[in-house]
Amino acid sequence: MLINLDFESQEPIYQQLIEQIIEGIARKDLLPGEGLPSVRSLASDIGINLHTVNKAYQQLKHEGFILIHRQKGVVVNPDGVPKADVTYMTQLEKKLKPLIAESVCREVDEESFMKLCNDIYKSYRGG
């Protein structure tokens, strides 16, 4: 999996890393049980601080995307990502509200917004 970080972005590097790993899992570029580079190795490969990678990995672990084993290293959760529950749906709504509000303010019509959402969703489902 290729990691592309934007060092000029306002978004923190660890958050970019988290999002790219999640996108890799969604696209099936990273499969359940597949190994990821060690914290030290990934930090060295992409030229960032190992604490940044560790922060991203810890958050991914907390959210159930990866497991960190002492012997096996870092792997995509072999059981798959935990299914959406009420807590996740509440968080999703909280994240979507400002995006939708800004789109309304910028006069993006509902049809265009929904088409964009559908196109992105299909791109992760292989459509």
Results as ranks from 00 to 15, higher is better:
His51Cys: 04
Lys72Glu: 12
Asn77Thr: 08
Leu60Ile: 02
Val108Leu: 14
Glu23Met: 00
Arg27Met: 07
Gln16Leu: 14
Arg106Met: 09
Ile3Tyr: 15
Lys55Tyr: 09
Ile25Ser: 10
Arg106Tyr: 05
Leu99Ile: 04
Ile120Trp: 12
Ser38Met: 12
Asn118Arg: 09
Val75Gln: 01
Tyr14Leu: 12
Lys61Glu: 15
Leu5Phe: 03
Ile21Gln: 01
Gly47Ser: 07
Ala43Phe: 00
Ala84Pro: 15
Leu50Phe: 08
Val75Tyr: 02
Asn4Tyr: 10
Pro32Thr: 00
Arg27Ser: 08
Glu93Gly: 13
Leu42Pro: 15
Leu50Ser: 11
Lys72Val: 07
Ile22Val: 03
Gly24Ser: 08
Met114Trp: 12
Cys117Gly: 07
Thr87Gly: 05
Ile66Arg: 02
Ser38Cys: 12
Lys72Trp: 05
Ser112Lys: 08
Gln20Leu: 04
Thr90Asn: 08
Val39Pro: 10
Gln59Ala: 01
Asn49Val: 10
Arg125Thr: 15
Arg125Met: 14
Ser44Asp: 12
Val108Gln: 14
Lys115Tyr: 05
Glu19Cys: 06
Val81Phe: 06
Ser38Gly: 08
Phe65Cys: 07
Glu110Met: 13
Leu116Asp: 11
Gly127Arg: 10
Tyr14Cys: 06
Ile48Ala: 07
Val76Leu: 13
Leu96Pro: 00
Val53Pro: 02
Arg106Trp: 08
Asp6Leu: 01
Leu5Pro: 04
Asn49Thr: 11
Gly24Asp: 12
Lys94Met: 12
Ile18Tyr: 05
Arg27Pro: 03
Cys105Asn: 09
Asn77His: 11
Val74Gly: 12
Asp85Asn: 06
Ile25Asn: 13
Leu5Ala: 02
Tyr124Phe: 10
Asp119Ser: 01
Asp29Gln: 06
Gly80Asp: 13
Gln20Met: 15
Ser123Asn: 02
Pro98His: 04
Gln20Lys: 04
Gly24Leu: 04
Lys95Pro: 12
Met114Tyr: 13
Arg125Leu: 14
Pro32Tyr: 01
Gly80Tyr: 14
Ala84Cys: 06
Thr87Lys: 09
Gly127Gln: 04
Gln10Cys: 14
Pro98Glu: 00
Phe7Asp: 12
Ile18Gly: 05
Gly64Thr: 08
Leu50His: 14
Glu19Leu: 01
Met1Thr: 11
Cys105Lys: 05
Gln91Ile: 02
Leu96Ser: 03
Lys72Pro: 04
Arg125Gln: 10
Pro98Thr: 10
Arg106Val: 02
Ile48Arg: 02
Glu102Tyr: 08
Ala101Phe: 07
Ile68Gly: 10
His62Trp: 09
Leu42Tyr: 14
Gly127Met: 11
Ala84Ser: 07
Lys61Arg: 15
Lys122Phe: 15
Gly64Phe: 09
Cys117Arg: 03
Lys72Asp: 09
Gly47Leu: 00
Pro32Arg: 15
Glu11Asn: 11
Glu93Met: 00
Ile100Tyr: 05
Thr52Arg: 01
